[in-house]
């Protein structure tokens, strides 16, 4: 079955089993490997992408559901919030192993797109679904606050 959607601004069509999770289409078919597999059941957030502007766990999103949608992966992430988040991430060396960080950056960027100056509680709510087994959480929280301050200018 052929399914068409936009990824990082490009029209893409794939001919796959419609049940295939978007995650495996992105990785195996489109070779966008920045989006990671961690659990397969929407527990860890390593596979987070933006689907029509909102964060979405691609591991539990059948590709048939994204027909006609607009998808952004870490490779195509752009805009002031994304730049502020990634700059803040680098400035305080958030990543350790780095494997979950694509998903963290996607969730954090989506948060700042919704809430320009998030409280600790906003961060808790937005980021609770993203596991970091290295427990870089202290720095994730700080980097989000730093990015928000950058955006305020």
């Amino acid at each position: 079955m052929t399914i068409s959607f936009t990824v990082n601004g490009e029209e893409r069509s794939v001919d796959v089993d419609p049940d295939t999770p978007l995650l495996w289409v992105l990785r195996d078919e489109l070779r966008l490997t920045g989006t990671k597999f961690g659990c397969g059941i929407a527990q860890c957030g390593a596979c987070t992408v933006h689907l029509d502007g909102s964060p979405r766990r691609s591991c539990v999103t059948p590709v048939s559901m994204v027909e006609g949608s607009d998808i952004t992966t870490i490779e195509g992430l752009s805009g002031p919030e994304a730049e502020a988040v990634q700059a803040a991430w680098r400035a305080i060396d958030v990543p350790q192993c780095g494997y979950c960080q694509s998903g963290q950056v996607m969730s954090a960027t989506a948060l700042l797109q919704q809430v320009s100056s998030p409280s600790d509680e906003d961060i808790d709510n937005a980021m609770a679904g993203n596991i970091c087994r290295c427990a870089t959480y202290v720095r994730i929280r700080q980097a989000i606050h730093d990015a928000a301050r950058t955006l305020e200018g």
Partner: peptide, 21 residues
């Protein structure tokens, strides 16, 4: 000193085994 691997681990370009095709 800033870590040498933070940048590639922030933009999705760092290559892990799962990323080998």
């Amino acid at each position: 000193l800033p870590k040498v691997d933070s940048s590639a681990k922030t933009d999705g370009s760092a290559q892990f085994t799962l990323d080998v095709y």
